[in-house]
Structure formats: structure tokens, C-alpha cells
């Protein structure tokens, strides 16, 4: 299949671009690190190298830049993968990772932790916990909803989301306007500022647990886009696969927003850009989306931390950079085939 080979090449190219982007991202920043220092420090972790760089350079690279680059890649990858997965199982091209309330729940959890004077770790844990709780609530409510299953899920997702958003607004209202309110507002805008190694360790496990089944089940997701009846006549238990996909996509979304805050845009648009590149077959769409998401958020985060003296929150930048790019693409490129 030439189509399939072409798609393999695209996925491979995205992989190479990601590696290059990671290397470049290590080098750029307020504190300049030169290529020889970068190579030296990275190799010194694997083999003995005589140190020719200052300790400060190594600290910046390992404790500041590495966790931040890792989080940008992981969050970008997870949000776009979750978006692609939700789009498939809900047969809805407009689905995004926040469709079942994961983001609204995380926002509430984070705001609550900030209100109670939590440390940054507590904010992350609280956001993660409330994110999962919200989606669980949405799922339980939808079980009681009459009629078509997926519609019930989406509707209860909207309801519960608005409930938690109202809760977040209330917390902002009662929060201390000098310290807490700006912290909440800043968190809600989404940022990877101050990413720590501990945060990477915290999200790595739920992300791995969530991503693996999504990658493995990617062929089955194609069948789900045909609708439940057709999927079942092709021997696929649509309800069971959908539940697994929802649980996994929710897990990676919750892990992402708990460290990054609200980055609402990536999960909707990166899957669509990937669809333009490799088509709708999840066989290639899944890996392409994962890589594309990681590249996109990494580059946007590079701009976020380098463009101006004060950092621009990611949530704002993704929209500022992404939306015009997306508008260009939907008006210029034709659908493949």
C-alpha cells in the first residue's frame, strides 16, 4: 500500500522533527547553553566525561530545562491523543479533551487548593483528583440518562462542567484578591512555568497507563466511528471499548491539566491537523497526533519562555499561534485521498 507507506514516512518525519525540536529547546533560554556544553552534559549521564562546563549550567539544564521540556512534550502528546480518542468514540469531530469535564474539574481542584494555601504539589494533586472525580460523576449521571448513550454522556459532561466552572468562579470571588486571585487566574491560563522534576514523576505513571491502551486499541477506534450498531455487527463490543478509551483518555487529560493548567486548544486542533496529514485511520492518526502534539506544545512553550521578558501563559499563546495557522490550513489544503 503506497498510501500506508507514505503515512509511515510522515510519522517518521514527525519523530525526527520532535527530536530536533527537543535538542534546540535545550539550547535556547534566558541562560545560554552552548551546543558543546549540551552534548557534554547529556553524555556525562551515560559515560564519564571530563567536566568543562560550570555547575550552574548543569543545574539549569537538568533541573530547570529538562523537566520543562519533558512536560511540554508529555502534555502536548496527551492532550492531542485524548482529543483524537474522544473524537472517535463520540463520533464527533468537535470533541476535545474537556468534553467530559476533565478540565473544569481540574480548574476547580486547583482553585480550591490555592484558596487553602496549598503548595504547588498539592495544587497538582488536587487538580488531578478533582478532574477524575468530575468525569466519574459525569459517567454516573449519564448511566441514569434516558436515550442514546453517547449523547447522555456529552450532555451530562456539559452540565457537570458548568457546575464546576461556577464553583471555580465562586472560589475566585471569595479568594484573597492580592495573592490568591492572581495565582488562580494565572493557573487557569495554563503554563509550564516552574516545572519540576517531581511533577514529571507524578504524571508519568498515569500518562503511561493511559497512553498504552489507546495506542494498542487504535484500530478498534476506527470501527467505533461507524456507530454502535455497525460496530457490533462487525464483532466489536462498542460499549466496552468506548469505556476503556474514555477511562484512558480521561486519565491522561487529568494528568496533563493538573500540571499545565488550562490549555484548551491543543486537544481539538492538533488531531484535526494530523487528520489532514495522514487521514482518519487511527493506525497512523494516533502516532501522528502524539508526535505532532508534543512538537507543537514544545515549540509554543519555547516561544512562551523566550519571546518576552515576562512569560506569556501557554493557554493564550496556543490560541494566538494555533488559530491563525489552523485557519490558513482549512482554507488552503484539501482533504487527502
Amino acid at each position: 500500500m503506497s498510501q500506508s507507506r507514505k503515512n509511515n514516512m510522515i510519522v517518521l518525519t514527525l519523530g525526527i522533527i520532535l527530536i530536533i525540536a527537543i535538542i534546540i529547546s535545550f539550547g535556547i533560554g534566558r541562560y545560554p547553553i552552548y551546543a558543546n556544553e549540551l552534548v557534554g552534559i547529556l553524555f556525562s549521564k551515560l559515560m564519564p566525561v571530563t567536566q568543562f562546563w560550570t555547575d550552574k549550567v548543569e543545574t539549569v539544564l537538568i533541573n530547570v530545562r529538562l523537566p520543562r521540556i519533558a512536560l511540554a512534550c508529555l502534555v502536548g502528546c496527551c492532550l492531542s491523543t485524548a482529543g483524537a480518542a474522544y473524537q472517535g468514540v463520540f463520533q464527533n469531530p468537535m470533541a476535545a479533551p474537556d468534553i467530559l469535564g476533565a478540565s473544569a474539574g481540574a480548574a476547580f481542584g486547583a482553585a480550591l487548593a490555592i484558596l487553602n494555601g496549598g503548595t504547588s504539589y498539592m495544587i497538582t494533586i488536587s487538580a488531578f483528583f478533582f478532574s477524575l472525580l468530575t468525569v466519574a460523576l459525569v459517567y454516573l449521571i449519564s448511566r441514569k440518562a434516558k436515550g442514546k448513550g453517547t449523547l447522555g454522556l456529552i450532555l451530562s459532561g456539559i452540565m457537570v462542567s458548568s457546575l464546576f466552572s461556577a464553583g471555580t468562579s465562586f472560589i475566585k470571588l471569595v479568594a484573597d484578591p492580592n495573592e490568591q486571585l492572581p495565582a488562580i487566574t494565572y493557573w487557569l491560563m495554563g503554563s509550564l512555568n516552574g516545572a519540576k522534576t517531581g511533577e514529571v514523576e507524578f504524571v508519568l505513571i498515569p500518562m503511561a497507563i493511559g497512553l498504552l491502551p489507546l495506542v494498542l486499541l487504535r484500530w478498534r477506534m476506527n470501527i467505533l466511528t461507524m456507530g454502535d450498531d455497525e460496530a457490533r455487527t462487525m464483532g466489536v463490543n462498542a460499549n466496552r471499548i468506548r469505556l476503556v478509551v474514555i477511562v484512558c483518555a480521561t486519565l491522561i487529560t487529568a494528568a496533563s491539566v493538573s500540571v499545565s493548567g488550562m490549555i484548551g486548544w491543543v486537544g481539538l486542533v492538533i488531531p484535526h491537523l494530523s487528520r489532514k496529514l495522514v487521514g482518519n485511520n487511527y493506525n497512523h492518526l494516533m502516532p501522528a497526533t502524539m508526535l505532532f502534539g508534543a512538537i507543537f506544545l514544545l515549540l509554543v512553550d519555547d516561544i512562551s519562555r523566550n519571546l518576552f521578558t515576562t512569560e506569556i501563559p501557554l493557554g493564550i499563546l496556543t490560541a494566538f499561534i494555533g488559530a491563525p495557522f489552523f485557519i490558513y490550513l482549512i482554507t488552503r489544503t484539501e482533504e487527502i485521498y
Binding site: 500500500m1 498510501q3 472517535g88 466511528t225 462487525m234 487521514g279
Partner: peptide
């Protein structure tokens, strides 16, 4: 369907079982 598949992929779905 909600998403456009190539004819080949569409038919290939029948082999999922």
C-alpha cells in the same frame, strides 16, 4: 460516517473480527 475513510480502510474494517 462522521469521518471520511478511504474505501480501502472502510473495507478493511470488516476483517476486524
Amino acid at each position: 460516517p462522521s469521518f471520511n475513510y478511504s474505501v480501502f480502510d472502510m473495507v478493511l474494517m470488516g476483517t476486524t473480527i
